[in-house]
Design a protein around this nucleic acid. Structure first.
Lengths: 143, 143
DNA sequence: TCTTAAATATGATTAATATCATGTTTTTAT
DNA sequence: ATAAAAACATGATATTAATCATATTTAAGA
């Protein structure tokens, strides 16, 4: 469903939401170690998220990444969209180009209700929502 | 969610369920054309499904593939399992090894109810169920 | 202003999927 | 028996996703 890249990106973003802020930026190296994703790999993803303004960053000493309060209110789907594109998660289960409610593929009725629900949740739940779950030990992100 | 291979396999199996039987076997060439999947590719998948006894086949003139009545009652998930393995569809949304109800990953609560539902349906709906939907024009498989 | 520490840009490599190709075996019909 | 028609087995190639590497740019602090 999600690419590795999206999974990694999500982990990094949630980690930043919990542990970084403008006065306490996080370096790639530390993020990488704490979320257990190869440094060079997560670096590239962080750079992309930063370029797309969902994360903030500064170069040089004391530099690093963080996510500002406004962006914490972005939906989870935003990250997935930036990294994977919405198409990946939304396209027909059998990859039929013009599958829809009126011309459903054989899997449509089985899959779509569940998937629509899932997508709606990814679009309504924010980064902050999930970060809060982590903070309150309602969810876990083991390394 | 599903690999291309699983999607192709499913299309082929449903096509056979509708259009082939022991007295009217279907050749790779015809299957390939009717479901719009490259011949050499679908051939390999059909051979695998045949080896795993979910499809039947005979060699030589008048040979080809079909699916017997018993196998039409196999769940959709069987095909997916043979081609992709169950793990692919069942593993944690963030690929955390030990994500479960007690130690849920941050996406678990969002994703799992929907996904469990989906998996349950793939395990309960049979090949024949979906073939009937096609027959009754409740679903479509455009090429 | 120089050094150092960080992100950034870019591209190379590796691994996994997807796709293609072909010689071998089996079966049917002549 | 033999020829032809089909699946079968095996492996090669191509494409995409995942991972790694590094030179460049920017900012901080001495």
């Amino acid at each position: 469903m999600l690419s590795n890249s999206s999974k990694y990106a999500l982990k990094a973003v949630l980690f930043l939401a919990l542990h970084a802020n403008e006065n306490n930026k996080m370096m790639v190296k530390d993020i990488s170690e704490r979320i257990n994703v190869p440094k060079a790999y997560i670096a590239k993803l962080l750079q992309e998220l930063s370029k797309r303004r969902i994360l903030s960053s500064t170069k040089g000493p004391k530099g690093g990444f963080y996510i500002n309060e406004a962006n914490k209110n972005q939906p989870i789907m935003k990250i997935i969209d930036i990294i994977d594109g919405k198409k990946r998660i939304e396209s027909c289960a059998l990859s039929l180009e013009d599958c829809n409610e009126h011309i459903p593929c054989p899997l449509h009725a089985l899959i779509n209700p569940s998937r629509s629900k899932m997508i709606a949740l990814l679009e309504s739940k924010t980064i902050n929502d999930l970060a809060m779950d982590l903070k309150l030990n309602k969810a876990f992100l083991p390394v």
